[in-house]
Nucleic acid binder design. Structure first.
Lengths: 339, 339
DNA sequence: GCACGGTTTGCAAACGTGTGCAAAACTGCA
DNA sequence: TGCAGTTTTGCACACGTTTGCAAACCGTGC
């Protein structure tokens, strides 16, 4: 004996004494129903606890009002914020989010495949990208996709990133004018474009000028603990940096604590630390980290608007979008050379 | 000219020269198909890029393998962790998460309604609870639901919480034996059970004993900034506390910074601060907050196991589950009375 | 009473799949 | 070859909706 109790439009129609079409029409805004039958149907529906089956519906209207979200990076609080905002924004427009997690780029294709089976109307991929073949399948299926914090010239998909190279140059200029000389670059997940492009720009700038050198470049260092350990290790090396540029805020905060608490260094006098992301903790009194504020809200806006536009008009061409990041000066970098 | 290109089992069947049932069976594990036709079908499917429509499928098998997740609280990093783990765990079992956000208890019913329309197989509600009527609808629909960090005797649903009263008593005992005398209780979102129950237990213990009093009880104070301001305000009041018990870690960290940086107080000598949640930042060197470690992983396990069990066997009765929280002693509370 | 324009209504055909059932094909064996 | 037993296959119906189309209905003005 199953408690299988789903009530269908058929039963509502029977109770109300009308046809199934009538009940369908009362639940479709803008359909032609007389007020009398509408009332009858609504009463019957209420009595039975009827709720239209969204899946059966989407089968014939060819739109599920679900958008697939694949998330490949959770470490950074930054992405949580995205998740929340995406959920709220799309929910307001009558869409739901179908959420999948993927370990890395490798898992993305699987996730996308699953989402396509569920006939999602659109796809949001944060901090990862699908294979070219998979992207092509999306296109053939007519499913618009927007990449966040990733882009690829070979994939036909919208993307929103920020101008990492420019930020790299800004950081370089700041360190230079404050008189720092030996900078270390620490990268988190190798493969996340944000850090890579930024570091490339710094390297380039350093190669061009004479007075400031890149003395170390480590990668795979992600999170508070890793950062704290990394700075300790760095101090054992032959040449110690006087500025560390870090591709995630939590890592930078770990470095800050490692430098101050473990190594007893004076920040920013003896060592500068700059982060990436501007998470809430970075502004907290105990840290006051100089970092780059990623324009998450702007990025979210761009992504949402673009995806909605593509849902509206499938003919629209995908386009790359870039938001402008902003250096926020706090207390972990001094502003002028020491006297 | 639409690029509408969905390929159906019909087309695959035609290309392979078999019936539609044959292609359906090749994609249903354990069905009876000869290797020869299976091969033909697989080739045709690959050539056409066929992917079974999960929605049409679930229409007839009466199971969508989607589970609905409604999230009412995002402030605390704690919940992000839950989200991620839920996603991964269920994904591993072949389920997807359909994510909805709700501002508060008020919005939960709406979210649940929407999820039911999508015929989710199960429901996870974190940090909020549906109305009694809505819970009844879920039951009639045969959709198991598990509540996280909430419970209600009147709702027939599984729930996982932790023993907040016990933790309240533990905190009280700790403060008492360390010789603190005037405790302030600060609550975040009024309505989140965790804090309420804990504070109630502390109040009760204080009423029973003689040597320690609750001198202030504020609520609606959530997040770093709010905490930092709150402690400043407290210091203007007639009677200043010597211990603050806080219902979220970020708030407690704000209080810590407010006390040390703004008020120039010595922690833990002049003031004790205890948090709730044990977020990563709380263990960081600059803070070392004494707090209670919520057993998130255990709670997640309980929730996942219970929901899966109910999906397996719909007859199963819902049950309340409680995980045990643990006080973690760090440096924001002294361990013995001052000399 | 009748023709006429405009609304409402029900019929039936989709949407893309799974599955019971009986027919068909195959297997092994005498 | 014939036959019993087993496996494979196709038909057709079901799942719960939406929607084009034509019939039914309604009110109105002659």
């Amino acid at each position: 004996m199953k408690p299988y109790n789903k009530v269908t439009s058929h039963e509502v129609a029977a109770l109300a004494g009308v046809s199934r079409s009538a009940v369908s029409r009362t639940f479709t805004p803008g359909a032609s129903v007389s007020v009398k039958t509408r009332e009858k149907v609504e009463n019957a529906a209420r009595k039975l606890g009827y709720r239209p089956n969204a899946l059966a519906r989407s089968l014939i209207v060819r739109s599920t009002r679900m958008i697939g979200l694949v998330m490949a990076e959770w470490q950074n609080p930054f992405y949580t914020r995205m998740l929340r905002q995406f959920s709220e924004r799309f929910q307001a427009e009558g869409y739901q989010l179908l959420l999948l997690t993927s370990a890395s780029d490798a898992g993305v294709d699987d996730a996308v495949r699953r989402l396509l089976q569920y006939q999602v109307d659109g796809l949001l991929i944060v901090s990862a990208k699908p294979s070219e073949a998979m992207a092509e399948e999306c296109e053939r299926a007519g499913t618009p996709v927007v990449l966040i914090n990733r882009h690829s010239p070979v994939i036909r998909a919208s993307s929103v990133t920020c101008d990492n190279a420019q930020i790299g140059r800004d950081i370089f200029a700041m360190l230079q004018s404050a008189g720092y000389r030996r900078v270390a670059l620490v990268l988190g997940d190798p493969g996340v474009l944000t850090g890579i492009e930024r570091n490339a720009a710094i390297n380039e700038a350093a190669a061009a000028g004479k007075d400031i050198r890149v003395v170390a470049e480590i990668s795979g260092c992600l999170g508070y603990e890793a950062g704290r350990q990394a700075v300790i290790d760095m101090w054992k090396a032959a040449e110690r940096p006087d500025a560390i540029v870090c591709s995630s805020d939590p890592t930078a905060l770990g470095i800050l604590d490692g430098a101050r608490l473990d190594l007893k260094l004076a920040v920013p006098e003896e060592l500068a630390v700059v982060g990436l992301g501007d998470i809430p903790q970075s502004s907290w009194g105990a840290y006051r980290l100089t970092t780059v504020h990623l324009p998450v809200d702007e990025m979210i806006n761009l992504a949402v608007e673009d995806l909605l536009a593509h849902l509206e008009d499938p003919q629209l061409e995908p386009r790359p979008m870039t938001a402008r990041a902003r250096l926020v000066h706090r207390d972990s970098v001094r502003v002028r050379p020491e006297a």
